[in-house]
Design a protein around this nucleic acid. Sequence first.
DNA 1: ATTGCAATAGGGGATTCACCTATTAACATT
DNA 2: AATGTTAATAGGTGAATCCCCTATTGCAAT
Lengths: 224, 224
Amino acid sequence: MATKNKTAPKRILIVDDHPMMRTGLAQLIDNEPDLKVAAEADTAGQAINLVSKQKFDLALLDISLPDKNGLELIKDVRALRPEMPVLVVSMHDEMIYAERVLRAGGRGYIMKQEGGEKFLHAIRQVLAGQVFVSEKMSARILEVFSGRQSENSGSPVRKLSDREFEVFQLIGQGIGTRAIADQLHLSVKTVEVHRANIKEKLVLKTATELVRYAVRWIDSQDRS
Amino acid sequence: MATKNKTAPKRILIVDDHPMMRTGLAQLIDNEPDLKVAAEADTAGQAINLVSKQKFDLALLDISLPDKNGLELIKDVRALRPEMPVLVVSMHDEMIYAERVLRAGGRGYIMKQEGGEKFLHAIRQVLAGQVFVSEKMSARILEVFSGRQSENSGSPVRKLSDREFEVFQLIGQGIGTRAIADQLHLSVKTVEVHRANIKEKLVLKTATELVRYAVRWIDSQDRS
DNA sequence: ATTGCAATAGGGGATTCACCTATTAACATT
DNA sequence: AATGTTAATAGGTGAATCCCCTATTGCAAT
């Protein structure tokens, strides 16, 4: 496509703690005439250092880094260069991450399982100022954002009513339906309805997913 | 080093579901005159197919593959080619994996975080018939193998059998009993027994507690 | 008044849990 | 060679939970 341009190739920064993955990405990128790997980093510290000293057209960040939480890194990078788009690379299929990444200011999210073409497509889309996420992910995110335009500032957990939130917290503590009912002096049936409504509001399909979501949410509240 | 040899380069099979990682590894290996990437696979099924049809001097396996547990793959590969050494590549720092890999017949374990030199060293060491593991790991493993304090060192998760561990990981991903059974081609009953045994070994009382424990454990593994 | 939603709870069928037993194969021990 | 151990498989059964409905009450906003 639009690669015939005489302009200099776009300078890309790669941040990943796996040398082999960096090599693979660099190989792919440097093979394109309009793209170029300008620098590599294997830690968050190194990445911030580079970003503060040089200008890049795009940063390709792995979210799981040894020294820092990937989301924190996105925020730091964006604080330094708000105009530089950030594309996040991850091995996790997780919806939770995609949401957080976009909220932290990332402009895209792609899985390591993807092949070269999709990678290049994502890179070019983000370079063009657009957002890139996978189909399933975008469907879900759009659903969450559009279905409830009113109260969606922040995590979907805010959409829970007080009682639902109370139940949600107990679930996150590993407490079962029966025990929750006892503890809140409710019928098991009522707790079941709350669970169903919570699942609905958080767009979760199964009971196990609900427990996982709740556990993660509770844990994320404790340390931060 | 010993690369002046006139013999044909050693044929290596790469199994990894991340295209970029494969490219990186291939780049590294093909740059060495005494080594050569003979084939690549991105699933366990494909790998077994290749191994059954061709001879390789070494297999480089990623333990986390989409279609099959990595430990099972090691066993399958070794059943087909007992003489072919297997070097396992993983992104996980954990001792638990190294132990299991060696017990399953793997001849080495190296992390994706390592750089090219260490990779080549590991490959050559395994090709030479020796075992390769990191320093910390070998220390810990020797301790476990020699000392009889095997009861309780580190997390109780290592008390789980391979199959139990597999189920445990799926639980931690928020996957329900039925779906686990389907995915592993087992009866629901079998999965239930595994869950019960896991609960026993980890001293957990209810199903919800099990999910919580598993979610936390999995999370602690991949976002360092 | 009417609409909307939170909170409560039940019915009923499908599924899972929790506690049993049982078989087979692989290994270790004797 | 006989025995014991353990992992992996799976069935039976009753209780609990899940998941899909409906239904009532109360309160707040329209």
